[in-house]
Design a protein around this nucleic acid. Structure first.
Lengths: 322, 322
DNA sequence: CGTTATATGTTAACCGGTTGACATATTCAA
DNA sequence: TTGAATATGTCAACCGGTTAACATATAACG
């Protein structure tokens, strides 16, 4: 209960504080004898170095923060998983913040970057004015979000993904293909999925129909929006949803209109999270390598922290899963 | 880039360091004039207090750690979400650790509790010898895990859940009901779901069949285990899966045997995560109040931190969703 | 007018580990 | 035997806030 400090260890082991510190940090000359004496005492006293004191002096916390819209979404929870596992290999620990696409929250988390002195941040969400990021001089990498020229971005080959998805539908003789997408902001590389869709459709002289469903609206609203597709006279025979969850909603809503899948309606999703692949092995989807995205984010961030050169953009492969 | 400290602020504002500290902490007498002078200077210099220095002195980090098997699982990601959102209201930040049900990892995270001096920990996973927890004198609460008598536990009314699920199947005239469960360790309150199943089955003089599928095995193995149910001669007409994901796997495997759902096979799941409810509105499930579990965990943990009285066990309601 | 409340400053200790500078002693190799 | 390598100790500054103690000055109040 009473706090054991390095002094207590030194005293008890009959050595100097400096020696204990040297053992703990593996610096200078230490004999095996001294080392084991110190280690035994540490064990005996159940001493745990105060990492806060160390962080304070070293000005380094071995903590990273991850800001995402919500960990509830499987894409982000899997991304978070891989990031955490990867960071832990280097002794880093991970803070998680759910911005909920709310700028107040996001600003709050950025404040933390500075206050809690995290060594770096991985951002998969942005809603505050991008200029605010310009002022930040910490180490940041961004996942699937273009923030500014200084912050490296890890993204999937979204254009290729959109192309693969659309072509897969065409190959199955779809003519009336609807593309369901999140907000088409310029800063989200995901918008390239729609760009690809549009270009492929144009090449084939087919009518485009893009439905925008912002990530931040309620699930109920998403379902309603999708329902409207079938309530309309468009008569879709193919749907490219840029998220597997939306793809599943499409299946559910289509069922309400007794539309047979895949006979009357083909669906292609996006993301290919482990969760959704396990739940719906039958869903055709464009799979992002979430694990690679997580690992790459960590790699780049650690490079930034260690003052190594990094690229501006890292584009990772996607593949069609059917 | 150069670090701005409280001294710089004091100097620039032409006041004492103590005064700046008083403004920042709202202690003692401060005039509006002084306050605004300080605030303006802080703004001007873009000063951010070093929270590490403060934590160091105060011996309090405003950080909490959450240890779970894996954030990839929707139950845990939703739990984490609610815990984080709730903690943030009180200015706490959340570390997340994926133990993967591995004792090495779990021990690692516990070490962090001590080293990084987190103010508390929420544990939804345990694999290391329970005695190890006895040595820990930090603030810990446990979710759905009985650790020891000192650590408060937040759990669902698992027994009721098992009862509701089994009875729902009986009401649909099922006679051959299989119960699929995770490891039946005594320390997991979830095992009471199986206890309830058994008792209800006994009361109705029906044959029990319990299949154990440990949480930690691969998804492929889980699917295979489920497949075996249908490959066997048991002829199940009802399945109580103590996890909605398993319930979905049951549907997928049953489909391979052309078993019609719900005509030939009724299924009841467990958890009722937002994710699964949205993906399968048609799945009957026992819904845990994950949000309440998260909020209660935080409430109890903060009470521990603030030396308030807490109960040993908090049992939260469940409801059948069909 | 004296007392009290308000307002600010000065100073220094403290939180716990790290590190550089320097001293000293032993061991070992050339 | 002498210089280098090894081994350990002493001492004190430092990281950046917080806080208690004490001094001082002005404003407010009865």
């Amino acid at each position: 209960m009473t706090k054991i400090t390095i002094k207590d260890v030194a005293q008890r082991a009959g050595v100097s504080v400096t020696s204990v510190s040297r053992v703990l940090n593996n610096r200078g000359y230490i004999s095996d004898n001294l080392r084991s004496k110190v280690m035994n005492t540490i064990e005996e006293l159940n001493y745990t170095p105060n990492e806060i004191a160390r962080s304070f002096y070293k000005n380094e916390t071995k903590s990273i923060a991850l800001i995402i819209p919500t960990i509830k979404n499987p894409f982000f929870s899997e991304l978070a998983f891989h990031i955490e596992r990867e960071l832990s290999k280097d002794g880093y620990h991970l803070y998680i913040g759910n911005s909920l696409n709310d700028e107040v929250n996001e600003r709050e988390y950025l404040k933390m970057l500075k206050e809690k002195r995290v060594d770096g941040m991985i951002v998969g969400s942005h809603n505050i004015d991008l200029e605010e990021y310009d002022e930040i001089n910490g180490n940041i990498v961004s996942v699937e979000r273009k923030i500014n020229d200084k912050i490296p971005i890890i993204e999937s080959d979204n254009y290729l993904g959109g192309q693969l998805a659309t072509e897969a539908l065409l190959k199955q003789d779809c003519k009336k293909i609807v593309c369901i997408t999140g907000s088409k902001t310029i800063n989200a590389p995901a918008s390239n999925r729609v760009v690809a869709y549009s270009e492929v459709m144009k090449e084939n002289n087919l009518e485009e129909k893009v439905i925008e469903i912002p990530f931040a609206v309620t699930e109920e609203e998403k379902k309603n929006k999708i329902n409207e597709i079938f309530a309309s006279s468009f008569n879709a025979d193919g749907i490219f949803a840029d998220d597997d969850i939306l793809a599943r909603y499409v299946m559910n809503e289509a069922a309400k209109y007794d539309i047979k899948i895949p006979e009357e309606l083909k669906i292609v999703g996006f993301d290919g999270t482990e969760m959704l692949r396990n739940l719906f092995p039958e869903l055709t989807t464009v799979e992002q390598s979430i694990e690679e995205m997580g690992k790459k984010s960590v790699e780049v961030l650690l490079n930034l922290i260690n003052n190594k050169k990094v690229e501006n953009v890292y584009t990772l492969p996607v593949k069609l899963n059917q």
